[in-house]
Write a protein that binds this DNA or RNA. Sequence first.
DNA 1: TTTATTTACGTAAACGTTTACATTGTTTGT
DNA 2: ACAAACAATGTAAACGTTTACGTAAATAAA
Lengths: 342, 342
Amino acid sequence: MSLHKTTIKDIAKELGISVATVSRALTGSHEVQEETREMVLRKAKELNYRPNIQARNLLKNRTNIIGVIVPEFVSFFFPEIIIGIQEVANREDYQVLICQSNETSDLERKNIEMLESSRVEGIIVSVTKESKNEPVFERLLNEQMPLVFINRVLPDLIADKVIIDDRKWAFKAVEHLIKCGYRRIAHLGGNEKLAVSANRLQGYLDAHRHYGLDVHPNLIMNLGVQQERASLGVNYLLSLKVKPDAVFCVNDPVAVGCMLELKKRGLKVPEDIAVVGFSESPIGRIMELTSVSQPTYEMGRVAAGKLLEQIKGNCKPAETVVLDAKLNIRNSSLPVHKRTQK
Amino acid sequence: MSLHKTTIKDIAKELGISVATVSRALTGSHEVQEETREMVLRKAKELNYRPNIQARNLLKNRTNIIGVIVPEFVSFFFPEIIIGIQEVANREDYQVLICQSNETSDLERKNIEMLESSRVEGIIVSVTKESKNEPVFERLLNEQMPLVFINRVLPDLIADKVIIDDRKWAFKAVEHLIKCGYRRIAHLGGNEKLAVSANRLQGYLDAHRHYGLDVHPNLIMNLGVQQERASLGVNYLLSLKVKPDAVFCVNDPVAVGCMLELKKRGLKVPEDIAVVGFSESPIGRIMELTSVSQPTYEMGRVAAGKLLEQIKGNCKPAETVVLDAKLNIRNSSLPVHKRTQK
DNA sequence: TTTATTTACGTAAACGTTTACATTGTTTGT
DNA sequence: ACAAACAATGTAAACGTTTACGTAAATAAA
């Protein structure tokens, strides 16, 4: 019941041999007598020896840990990405240190510094909106810290990135609304400084341009990516003389908030207003919300794969992996002529 | 652009002083001249020095890491607990290594061993259903590994536990149904071997006993804790000659699955059948599901607090902290006489 | 036999810190 | 003036490993 954890020295002393021999026996070196090895292994088991990874890592100057920074992980989205990351990392004996930046630039920076102090061998990050940490990431890149951006990226940085084509899929989502017969499509956008938001807005504009529809600036609002922000937007939209007949939302939470507010106001989806989200969510699925689904697990796996490659020193030039997505059409965006049949 | 990370030695060499002085300056020791300290701090910043935590920990024989094992973290519940844990842990400079056992006993054991090898200083765990690892946890306790069970516990083990009184709150939930006028209340239970499930079933039985209601064994089914399992139960319940007028579900996912299946079958909640869940969830809230809310963040904080106490060697006897919960009444369980008004 | 090679093991340095102890130079007390 | 106390710094050991190097004995080659 000693609080002392068995070390290699204890084994050596008990057997009257040197620590070097014990180490060799344990690491499976060939330069140790079979007889000796067995003796060591037996004693190690007897003393319930566990190698001290810290000491080994200090010597080899590694930690076998990678860091992950996400804005939050209460919504399904980032947890799924993290699971994908863990899957690949664990397979290669890496542990994953998970941090959440809580959507604040400041905590993001602190997390980075903490991960550096923990001597993680690489970092996978999904930046906060309004990340003011571009210089920090630049420093990391300069210092050759393996780094992969996922989902939310900094467009100006030359680094590995794993994303979907937000612009393209936003286009497809809005195109779907247009083809369904909707003509006054509003957009509840996220934060302009967030690349994903900006790109989805672009896709929205692209679709209008492509199908010759006028863009009404007063139908476009950038309120944020959180569910609660939606009511504000809905209230405004419903106050207009000419109301929109559909809303394309920057993500599912906002779309859900939008649907809830509409319901509260006594409006039916899609009969009065159609709604489309982005990124899929269990709640959205249940509410029959049309949305673009991202391959979350796969994104995590790919990001971890690229990070481990960087760590192993395969110094390929920075690459942006664009994964495929999918538009899932549900009842929240029925074609105008089919709506009454519902 | 060197791959070499700045060490205390580099600073010492550049300034022509000893590593001891540098160390003292950095750790805020009083026995160093103010002038020297400033010099060191300036140089440290210039060279972007980050202390190597591994080396420090090796010396002090600690890691400043605690491990957390949860069954899963895609649903809101465990992420919230984890955030609470991180909050307290980070405040005390501890990192959190998060593992998911994926509801399998085997992966749970592997995670434990992995955390041991990583020399975590303590473990917070929510066991899998049918955890066969009681002997493993017993060993950990014997070896004085700080350990706190949270939410899902092993009743026979003497250890720190952070829970709510599942039996009591299940009683309250069912009592609420009874007071609303429901008389044939079914129970979609979880796994019998899972303490939380067993306790919630007991609460269900208690309420029946307390209010003199007969228990109909064929209205009680233990199908599991996942949403998908609910349809099976609903199908069976609806096949009975005398159908239930309410369902008390072991948790929100099952309750949601239950509501969806009822909807699919053309039945209205609560007009045809009332539904009550447990543990709260965003989806449940949106579906207006009556449920018991647990203080997830607080549970995490308390568990982390207790673990850190254990780590610091405050060897109190094992204690079970029972936190308060709350029954949130929503439309899924309207009083029978009010239902038509809806 | 003598020399070269191999085998099995020991010695000691190294990783980046912290800290007990030693060593200065300076101040205080008598 | 001299001992005592103190302040600021240096020296070196320690944490638990791995591994380059050295060494002795045993074996193979000459």
